[in-house]
């Protein structure tokens, strides 16, 4: 049973992919999709459909998969590294820093996706660096001090963001607000190419360290199990920051994925990171892909995917907590 569930979770992106390939404001029949993939040279397909499929839908799908994988795996890893089930990538201040960076880019240099993403990435990393430094002040870097430092840093960047909102032209603010809600509407191949190396590297690293993540979730006790605790912890925190910052910089704050997906996987497969990490990667990718497919089809306007992940994620998370209270609370 567990084995089959594991296979199902690992294969979930393969199930979500065709659904998403066939959904959108422009209807492309499965036949036409097949034709375009198998024999792209044949001119029988309308160029518009070609453009929709290759230039719009496919990069957006790939970006959704990347962002989903990145957020879930960094959520799962952070929870293990901080031995705290309620930690998510955003607790570290990544998203607050990134939103401030994006706002700054729009206000100072008038935006452009690349500038915005670059600035979001830089400030996301700065925020985490400050969080980590603050959490070390008392020398122990306990999970609680990390979370507290994250709250402090998030609050400060949040205040700075509001200051930018206040000073800036409301038209520019509208764009930052939309972006900060988490959206993939600006997906393009260049976005995929820009974010793939960072997310890919981080995800591979976290996957490779999956057993260590289990051991590190024992807390400082892991030292007595032969783990170079401080060094490995910093390395893994850096890897989670890397993937989160890349994901946030291309997609804004896609909320709840990093909390919901690892918990769901843990409920199904147990806490062992050897299955938790790979299943979080794949199921997280599928989850964000499906949510984004809804985001671009359900309403007459394009919705920010972060709104949907929150609307689906938050109540479901409550349900999970109630169902399995004894398991981790």
């Amino acid at each position: 049973m567990r084995r089959w569930l594991m296979i199902l979770l690992l294969a979930s992106p393969l199930l979500a992919f065709p659904v998403s390939m066939l959904s959108g404001r422009v209807w492309i029949s499965p036949r036409a999709v097949g034709q375009m993939i198998l024999t792209p040279q044949e001119a029988s397909i309308q160029p518009t459909l070609q453009a929709v499929l290759w230039q719009v839908r496919l990069p957006r799908i790939l970006l959704a998969l990347l962002v989903g994988a990145a957020l879930s795996v960094s959520g799962a890893s952070l929870q293990q590294v901080c031995w705290n089930p309620l930690v998510s990538p955003y607790i570290m201040g990544v998203s607050a820093g990134a939103c401030f960076g994006a706002a700054l880019a729009v206000v100072l240099w008038g935006g452009g996706y690349a500038t915005m993403q670059g600035c979001a990435f830089a400030f996301g990393c700065i925020a985490v660096a400050i969080t980590s430094a603050l959490s070390q002040i008392r020398g122990d870097s306990s999970p609680v001090s990390l979370v507290l430092a994250g709250i402090i840093v998030s609050a400060c960047f949040g205040a700075l963001l509001f200051m930018v909102y206040l000073i800036a032209d409301p038209d520019k603010v509208a764009q930052v607000v939309y972006w900060s809600m988490g959206s993939l509407h600006a997906a393009s191949w260049s976005g995929v190419i820009r974010s793939f190396p960072g997310i890919g590297l981080g995800v591979v690293l976290l996957y490779a360290f999956r057993w260590r993540l289990s051991v590190l979730s024992m807390g400082t006790e892991a030292k007595a199990l032969g783990v170079a605790y401080e060094r490995e912890r910093i390395l893994l925190l850096a890897a989670t920051t890397l993937v989160t910052a890349f994901a946030v910089s291309v997609a804004g704050t896609v909320a709840w994925v990093g909390l919901l997906v690892p918990h769901l996987v843990r409920l199904i497969l147990g806490a062992d990171s050897r299955s938790l990490i790979p299943a979080s990667i794949t199921f997280g990718a599928a989850f964000v892909l499906l949510a984004d497919t809804l985001a671009r089809t359900v309403y007459k306007y394009d919705l920010p995917v972060g709104i949907l992940t929150t609307l689906i994620g938050a109540p479901f998370f409550l349900y999970l907590l109630r169902r399995s209270r004894t398991a981790w609370v």
Partner: peptide
Amino acid sequence: IWYTVDMEWLLARD
């Protein structure tokens, strides 16, 4: 109001 559209919509309207 300014609102956000998706590229597929735009390509379809062309």
